[in-house]
Design a protein around this nucleic acid. Structure first.
Lengths: 221, 221
DNA sequence: TTTGCTTTTACGGTTTCCCGTAAGAAAAGC
DNA sequence: GCTTTTCTTACGGGAAACCGTAAAAGCAAA
């Protein structure tokens, strides 16, 4: 089993119980940090001292407080940590339930496992660590069901950009100018309308407001 | 200090660490439940056996799973528990940060304390229990700051209904018919427009899409 | 009941959005 | 090189949303 484990988690209670879970697995005195910046510091220190961590367990969202932080959240922490230690295994432990977000963590950040804070999370965390230790990936328990909703429609970058602009109050007729300015193509108003219509048709929506609400729920914007 | 404590919390990890916190306070073997219905059952049993609980620590949101539950969440649990044991002290321990919600818990449900799951929640939980034991109320640490955002704009039921309808794809011009059908007043199209305009003005928005996005973020719809 | 005030509703003009069609541009195939 | 296909853009008519104004309805106090 892993020996050098680093926990990045701002909630004191969660941090305590994760440590207890590790204790149950026979992992002695894991390092823990309440801030992402501190966590990255420990990663660096581990390398410098020739005793690098072999697993990082991190939350996603960290509350901001008086201590100003360079790294705002778990996703950025993973990226920064992997940059200086590419072989570091990472396990995300978070309440996040949006498929798009979790999917992105696996595909973009290359995390090794995800455990959702939920009813049997302590047991699942143990299982996840064992799987990751064997070199496997650990997906959340209800990942397949969750994936269904997502696969309803594959949103392109353009799609998300357009909906984001709408959600920010940009008039539809002004979107082409914005797209052109950022060298995004296609940029014509008709193309914007076409994309919106296509999305609405597939999802059986009739109004842009529904798209905004849907994308918010899915965590895409 | 309290002797008979009941914990209602669905997340295994949180439950474990709350128990550990109570242990630190010298509270021996608190009762804990993963479902609201179970928690209420224990409250009943406590009364029946002449050994009622003197503190209920509960989360607010409980995940639904295969086990069908009568009581869906912490607020309802508190209400049900107080109905059969009015003197029961209640402490809510939740990640909820919306002032409107927490405010309602104190005013409507009459809870004795609120601790937000956050950076120093273990310490705060201890402090809260001591205060409640002395007969005081315990408010969240950053309650004043939190109150600021609340004062941004008070959304009425009508406001939320209108935005929900928009987010569901109802045409603005069809909203009056819906409101009239549900005996909601005012219901005129001009009144709908007026409310939307007022909300947008206060929040400095220009489009309905922004309102939908904002309310999604705030968890109002 | 009348008066004065507030809230709600009705209406009309302007802007934006929606949607179909067709022209134009780019890519693919021969 | 030329055609075919696909994608992108331009345009125009009609629907919906936006915005200001004025009439109507509620409501409180005299």
């Amino acid at each position: 089993m892993f020996q050098n484990v680093l926990i990045a988690e701002d909630h004191e209670h969660t941090s305590i119980s994760v440590r207890k879970t590790l204790e149950d697995l026979g992992i002695l005195s894991p390092r823990y940090a309440y801030y992402c910046d501190d966590a990255l510091m420990w990663v660096k220190k581990g390398i410098q001292e020739g005793n690098p961590y072999d697993l990082l367990i991190t939350d996603l969202s960290f509350d901001a407080d008086h201590r100003e932080q360079r790294i705002p959240g778990g996703a950025e922490l993973i990226q920064a940590a992997k940059q200086i230690q590419p072989d570091l295994k990472t396990l995300v432990f978070s309440a996040e339930s949006k498929v798009a977000v979790i999917d992105g963590l696996f595909k973009v950040q290359g995390i090794n496992g995800y455990v959702r804070k939920a009813r049997y999370d302590a047991q699942e965390l143990k299982a996840a660590m064992e799987e990751i230790y064997k070199g496997k990936l650990h997906f959340p328990a209800h990942f397949r069901e969750m994936n269904r909703q997502k696969n309803a429609y594959a949103f392109s970058n353009l799609d998300i950009t357009i909906i984001s602009l709408l959600a920010q109050g940009v008039l539809q007729k002004d979107i082409p100018a914005y797209l052109a300015q950022n060298q995004i193509r296609p940029s014509g108003l008709s193309s914007v309308e076409k994309r919106l219509n296509q999305m609405k048709e597939v999802l059986e929506f009739s109004k842009n407001e529904q798209l905004v609400a849907f994308c918010k729920d899915m965590g895409m914007i």
